[in-house]
Design a binder for these strands. Structure first.
Lengths: 109, 109
DNA sequence: GTAAATTTGTCAAAAAATGACAAGTCTTAT
DNA sequence: ATAAGACTTGTCATTTTTTGACAAATTTAC
């Protein structure tokens, strides 16, 4: 895994877009998206739709897995932020995730 | 903070309910909920609705803040589980949450 | 066996997310 | 100054997701 961005996913898209000199309208078209809505995405007022990740990775020649990690950590980070989840509670959450994994293994037997 | 349960929130409700000898129907009534749906909640097939936490804490004489932490860690744990988020990525997510906090502080100025 | 308790399936209603478009602001070149 | 392009914001219909409700199983305890 290479380094992950410490920005919101929207800011990351904006960064990529600016680097490549595309306008909102141009990138939105490539993504099959309305430019107004892409603007909202970049400004964190809407979520980027996960099913557009492959196209996004293609447009900017990014590794899809890494991009998905960028997306995923943004999503979880957002939830941590919104719920005001402390580090301490996050550890509990992590244990609970682990617990769910064991549940799932049992189910598989 | 006292100890948090290492179970899903649904299992926790079931535990509480069994300890107090209530049936699904009885507890569901107190929660203003259909017993079939409470069953699904306990079995992890639906989510407990956050707005019922106060009533739940009242019914079982629990501290609302702690109960909310139980709920919150369950929610985030579920997301960690569903997205297959590794510990490593979770650390990144935590940093991104931190980043959002700084963004929010700036906005407040 | 049967009565109560629980689970499962289904579907309409409610709520949330998304797409689309109009109208606004801001910037920049002329 | 203003016209053009880039971006932002607001709104609303449509779509998707979640929830509530009820009927019909299945399981459990007697």
């Amino acid at each position: 895994m290479t380094s992950l961005m410490n920005t919101t996913f929207g800011e990351y898209i904006r960064l990529l877009r600016n680097e490549s000199g595309l306008t909102l309208t141009q990138l939105a078209a490539k993504l099959n998206l309305d430019s107004a809505n892409l603007s909202k995405i970049e400004n964190g007022k809407r979520d980027f739709d996960e099913k557009r990740l492959p196209k996004l990775s293609e447009i900017f020649s990014l590794n899809l897995k890494e991009l998905r990690n960028e997306y995923l950590t943004d999503q979880i980070g957002k939830k941590i932020y919104e719920t005001n989840c402390t580090k301490q509670l996050l550890e509990v959450a992590e244990e609970k995730a682990e617990y769910r994994r064991t549940l799932n293994k049992e189910k598989a037997l």
